[in-house]
């Protein structure tokens, strides 16, 4: 019994010492963060040196967050276009590059025209990852330079479904200045075997309020994929004059899913209209 007790005491004492050492280390770490390090003005490394160091650290980073954190710091120091490209290449070399995060990082750090130019430059790249990043960067732009149409069309005709989804939005954005929609392209997108392409196409079509577009969207209401039906119905609610009658005409459609999604969209539209009519009173964000 005494031997047992002594063993426990000894082990516990060792653990206590280890614990105290951990507390001391932790306290030291905390203090080093609480007390700001002094730096005499003008004696630190130049912005260029710091950028170079950070970019090297990004290239050596093994985790996404570490790479992103250092890339953010480097972007704050106003890098040149070559340095931005080097940073992006380093981020894309990560085992699982976080594309949306990189796009958000560049969108946030570079001014808008510079970011748009940068993404547009990446689209014709041979490197698949760079191309995808460029497409993703352009996918939220309302209009894209029509000169890129050829490259985007080529990308859209790819076998890769993900590439087609990514190329679809910027491709349609190149037609933003045209008064008539690219009907042949829209029909092709609506018949795509990948439901993600059909859903993205339905959402993107709402920008043209023509009868042709409404007809294509009405056809998508009977699609086999729920997300496509839903996107088509929501897009129809955004088409002035023609969308609502098209949805109402689905009341007697033989397909119960098409009737359902149309009724749902009309319900939501009614709610939105009621909200607008009630003005700004009530709860808001």
């Amino acid at each position: 019994m005494y031997l047992t007790a002594m063993t426990i005491s000894l082990a516990s004492s060792i653990a206590t010492v280890v614990g105290i050492a951990c507390v001391a280390l932790l306290a030291a770490w905390g203090l080093s963060h609480v007390r700001p390090r002094r730096r005499v003005a003008g004696t630190g490394p130049s912005a260029e040196d710091r950028r170079g160091l950070l970019i090297k650290q990004v290239e050596r980073s093994t985790t996404n967050h570490a790479a992103l954190a250092r890339a953010w710091l480097a972007l704050q120091l106003g890098p040149s276009d070559q340095e931005v490209e080097r940073l992006v290449l380093a981020l894309l070399a990560l085992p699982r590059p976080p594309y949306p995060y990189i796009v958000a990082l560049l969108d946030s750090a570079l001014d808008k025209p510079r970011a748009s130019d940068f993404f547009a430059r990446l689209v014709p790249e041979h490197h698949r990852r760079l191309r995808h990043l460029g497409l993703m960067g352009l996918s939220r732009k309302l209009s894209v330079d029509p000169a890129l149409r050829g490259v985007l069309l080529e990308e859209y005709r790819s076998e890769d479904g993900e590439a087609r989804v990514l190329a679809l939005r910027p491709l349609l954005a190149t037609y933003a200045g045209d008064s008539t929609p690219p009907v042949f392209l829209l029909r092709q997108m609506a018949a795509d075997p990948d439901w993600r392409v059909r859903a993205a196409a339905a959402t993107a079509m709402a920008r043209w309020g023509t009868m042709t577009v409404v007809t294509v969207l009405r056809g998508l209401l009977t699609d086999s994929a729920w997300r496509v039906r839903h996107s088509a119905a929501r897009a129809l609610t955004a088409v002035p004059h023609l969308g609502v009658p098209a949805l109402e005409s689905m009341n007697t459609h033989p397909d119960p899913y098409a009737r359902d999604v149309a009724a749902d969209a009309l319900d939501l539209l009614l709610v939105a209209v009621t909200k607008r009519a009630q003005g700004s009173g009530g709860v808001s964000r």
Partner: peptide, 18 residues
Amino acid sequence: RHVMPIPLGILRGSPHVP
């Protein structure tokens, strides 16, 4: 060291946030 320094402003309002 790696996550907290990334400002939330990058994601705030970004259309790329899921």
